[in-house]
Design a binder for these strands. Structure first.
Lengths: 213, 213
DNA sequence: CTATGTGAACAGCTTCACAGCG
DNA sequence: CGCTGTGAAGCTGTTCACATAG
């Protein structure tokens, strides 16, 4: 569809935060919300909120604000989560197993429909109740091609992360949520979002060091 | 200690990535590395690498590059991970349990030394082999004050995240790695680093939507 | 009178390009 | 020569301030 020509990357990131906060407001039975209210809850200026939303359309009404329910719908459309995305997961270590049963995904429109691991002892086993069974890596290509899965969660050791990535991309995966502490090399058109837990802690330890004992 | 007056936040984030990559280079028995090599591995320009490092000191040698081992030492000092940080963890759901046994922390200088949960059935139990036992929330304040823990990992449901945060901060916590999908409100001097898995997936689904079917 | 949407001003970050050093 | 460190230039993102709409 349309190209998002000049939209700042940070604006897209914040869009997710707006959605989350809007859902919280809705759960508090709020019907309309102003850029100021939204900004205060997220520690963002009201001007920033308005500008971010304006990149995607005119959703507000002067003098009133934004209709919560309507804006939720719009933002979901923009983010592409107005439908359910099938997601594949590779690697069933501690983290991988936790992610399979993570409740936050389902409610946001993501569903883990296939799990792969190279440990033969796990093949055919399932985590959780109705979860998918663990499949051998050799089946990844066929499954992805069959089911048209485009999103993957990667929670394998750093040493094999790149080779697994190559396989996934060859099969058609377009977005990878990467938990392995390596900089994955991917071709244009494939997006990677990195979650490195150690990096996050390092940022915090730097923050403490700088603000005195 | 020193104030980091005008250092761009993104530069600090990248510092963690440099460290990770430098360790990989060292493991490949590389002795020196140029800003170009470092940048290529991480998909960053060589000028950016040099500028980032220059914010913290003069670590390189013209004509040669950076001494890998030496730079690792320096970066660790800067990030504050040249020692081991005791970390507390609150919330032992799927994610919390996975994080307790997560190997990536230990090797990076972080050690989970205390675990709290409000579920009485878990009190006294331990995850992993020599791990700490789960303690009731009521003991958090005393334990943090006693042991001077400054870093916390928060993996509790969104509904209680803020109240747990308030308790932790009152006890002296200065840095929080937050997995709950809420914008925590914290006073100046306390740092929060958010990991919202749904947000990450939303960014990817947006990315796919924008680059055509 | 309240709150949006937006050009213009500003701030912050990145890239360029080159002097200087080994 | 190769590569660092760094001012200057360029670019991107944020904030300001106000015209405009309800």
């Amino acid at each position: 569809m349309g190209k998002h020509e000049s939209i700042p990357t940070p604006a897209v990131r914040r869009l997710s935060l707006y959605l989350r906060q809007l859902e919280a407001f809705r759960d508090s039975n709020l019907r309309t919300v102003s850029s100021k209210q939204l900004g205060q809850a997220l520690r963002i200026t009201d001007a920033q909120v308005r500008k971010d939303l304006a990149y995607f359309g005119q959703f507000g009404q002067p003098g009133i604000g934004y209709d919560v329910e309507e804006l939720i719908t719009k933002v979901r459309q923009i983010l592409g989560t107005d439908r359910t995305w099938p997601v594949l997961l590779v690697g069933t270590g501690n983290l991988g197993r936790a992610l399979v049963s993570y409740k936050g995904f389902q409610s946001k429109g993501f569903e883990v429909v296939a799990i792969f691991d190279d440990n033969p002892a796990l093949h055919g086993k399932a985590f959780g109740e109705n979860g998918p069974k663990v499949l051998p890596m050799e089946m990844l290509d066929a499954v992805v091609k069959d089911t048209q899965i485009r999103l993957a969660i990667l929670s394998v050791p750093a040493t094999v992360a790149q080779s697994v990535t190559d396989i996934m991309i060859a099969a058609g995966v377009k977005g990878i949520l990467n938990f392995a502490p390596v900089a994955l090399q991917v071709p244009r058109g494939v997006n990677v979002s990195n979650v490195d837990l150690a990096v996050h802690l390092e940022q915090l330890s730097f923050g403490i060091g700088s603000s005195g004992v």
